[in-house]
Amino acid sequence: MNPRAVGWLRVAVHPAGLLPLALLLFDAATGGLSVNPIQDVTLRTGKAALVLLMLSLACTPLKIVFGWKWAVGLRKPLGLYAFLYVCLHLLIFVVADYGLDAALIWQAVVEKRYVVAGFAAFLLLLPLALTSTRGAQRRLGRWWRRLHRLVYLAAGLAVLHYLWLAKVPREPLIFGVILAALLVLRLPALQRLVAGRLAGSAQRFRPGSEGGVAGRGSGPPAGPARASGAQRQPDPEGEAADHAEYPEHRPGTIDHRRSAQGTGEQ
């Protein structure tokens, strides 16, 4: 994708992230909420949080599968907007629904396991949001990435939270399947498979070329993750092969090759 489009996407993610909130406030102002507004607001902020969390977790797989490096830049704002809705969701529950009544809230925690799962997910996301700054990334170094793997657990708990509260399990299970797919796509073995497939088809596409195989092991090392840690290098072998193959290659041109292989625009 060209840098201009990437720039627009990075701007567009903000109105997109605020859209559920805007719709909610619009409905609240115009009488569009139901006669049980607390439940409406609770459900809608919860759903927005879950969807944004899934979108945030989809960025890395998009890069792995389609080579869309730009997607990684959306991961952080999507994650932070998810956390915004998590906070709203929790506040509505504690303040509007349970009126800050400690005894009532404690009873809910004891008797409703979905409350425990949801609160645990919040507690796991809290340090991630707090360390989302570049400064924190620098300070934490390699620990930053390890810490931020907690998002997988938090997302699992969020889906469990939804499953445990829903009267009908269908929709939570759909979220569960999506989450499982997004996590499986991160497995190193799968990444190698994808990288191998892409390299293999590139070879077929350009007969006579030594293809990815030539680059294997001889290309420039993937190198340490950038100080920010934001751009993971999940498939050093594949990346290295890419660059060895195309010494002139710049990141902005990668899409043309991938779409030529029929994997880019699906």
Binding site: L25, I38, V41, L88, L91
Partner: peptide, 11 residues
């Protein structure tokens, strides 16, 4: 939004 949503819930 916290303020607005809390207000909306009470109305």
């Amino acid at each position: 939004s916290v303020a607005a949503l809390l207000a909306a819930c009470g109305v």
